[in-house]
Structures are given as C-alpha cells and as structure tokens.
Amino acid sequence: MSKQEMVLSSAVAKQYNAEKEPKGRSLWADGWRRLRKNRLAMLGLFIIVFMTFLAIFAPYVAPYDPIEQLIWTKGRAAKLASPSREHWFGTDLYGRDILSRVIYGTRISLTIAVAASVVSLVIGVSLGAVAGYYGGKVDDFISWLTNVIYAFPFLLFVLSIVAFRPASLTLVYIAIGFVSWPSIARVVRGQVLSIKETEFVEAARAVGASDFEIIFRHILPNVIAPVIVQVTLGMGSMIMTEASLTFLGFGTQPPTPSWGYMINQGREYLLSGQWWWSVFPGLAISLTVLGFNLLGDGLRDALDPRLNK
C-alpha cells in the first residue's frame, strides 16, 4: 500500500468519524444506487468480474494447456511464434500459448489479492478493533507497531521477507498481507473509536454484553463499509507488488504462469523484437489493477455520501 492510499484512507476515516450515527441497510442500498450511476466504477466492477470468471473457468476458456511446451513436438516453428489465428497472443520460448498463460495468470494474481487481503484483514481488523476499543496502553502499542511497519518502504520490506526463502505463492501472500495490515488497522481503529461512544453501544454495555460481543455484534458491522473501500483499493497494489517481486526474480517458481514472471522472461525478447511475450501480461496487470482502482474509487464515493454533491 502506498502512502497515497494511506492519506486517502485517513480521509475516509475522518469522514466516517463525522457521521456518528451508525447506519444500517439504507447505507448499502444508497451506496449501490450511487455506485450503479458511476460508469467508471461499473467498468471496474465489470473488469473484476470478467477476470474472476477467467480465473474460475480457465480450463474451459483457455485454448491450450498453459504449461504444454510445443517445441518438443513441433520444433522451431512453435518457438516464439508471433500472434496468429492459432495463438492470438503468440507463443513463448517453449512454444507455450501466451493467451492461455495470461488466462491462467488471473488465478495467481487474484489468489494473491484475495489471500493477502485475508491475511491483512485478520491482522488489521483485530489489532485495529482492539486498539480502538480498549485505548490507552494497548492503543499506544498498536499505533506504534503500525507506525513502524509504515516506516518501511513497502517493496523493500516484502523483498526482505521473500528473498531468503524458497519461492512459493504462500510465502508471497503472507508477506504482502503482513505488510499491508496497518492501513486497515487505522481505518478500523478510527471507526471503533467513534462508534464506541454512541448511545447504542452504551446501551448494549448497560445490558451486560461482553467486550467480545460488543466488538463483534455492534461495532464491526459498522466498520465494514470503509474496510471494503480500503481492501478494494489495496488489492490493486497487492497485485502490483506480486508482479514487481516476480519481475525482480523472486517469489514464484516455474511453470506457474505469473504475469510478473512472464514480463521478466519476455523482456529480453522484447528488445529483440518479440514483444508479445511481455506486452500481453503487462496489459493484463494494468487492466486488472485498473479494475480494482476504478471500483475502489467508486466505492469510496458511493459509500461516503459527503463526497457526493
């Protein structure tokens, strides 16, 4: 997560702090109505749904097996074949179909985005909720931890975790998730701080509800909206981070069709004129990240009435 999103998220948090009244169903209904009117956001949603569809149905959509190497049977002709009717995106050095690899690559990118988000949600929501709810020393400690993680340039931190260990997808999303939780923790903390003083939480406390119950029943449901915005915006940069890692040669192992790795493999051939090996995966990354950014922006506007004039 870049500092940019951090600034935006604190802005989001501030606005939510402004409305002390927790909202129920109407917020979601209103939000969806506003979102539907936002054409760019709908485009973003469409891109993400499309990519998810490709990921799920990859075996049916992809024309070839993504790891099948045609050079061993078809020889030189199959190697780095330029885009044609048989291979829309061309083939790579081993005669693998790049379109199929790009399609299967959605699985890697979306897995990273989802799994890393889960990791950062688990850490971020629990730490943020605890910090906001209990305040005092606990809050100080967690805020300090957040600031420490923030102080690291994001990519450097992830690289330091990943570089010395054998490459695997699990390691990558844990590392990314582990570094991205502070932005979520901040949003949650801010929300909890403002909600816990409201009347209905006071009421729950008076009835004798436990802390645990109050946090989970009454406070967290109200935090969902800003967290969704945060997570959506974050997914784009998580995908970008995974691509950056694999581009630098860390984080993934052949024959996994990771987009960043494909760009890395294809770059040598890019400069000798076989542009398709690295251009198509690059486009795929851009499109997916664009989708998440558009949707994230749209969600922020839709779920935050104040910004909509």
Partner: peptide
C-alpha cells in the same frame, strides 16, 4: 541458484 538462465533451462526440462 537464483538466475534467469538457470530458471529458463530448468523450465524446459520440467516438460521433458
């Protein structure tokens, strides 16, 4: 050991 060339070759041999 981490190196694009080694990876390139190993990737080919995976199929073999």
């Amino acid at each position: 050991n981490t190196n694009l060339g080694h990876k390139r070759l190993a990737e080919a041999l995976q199929a073999q």
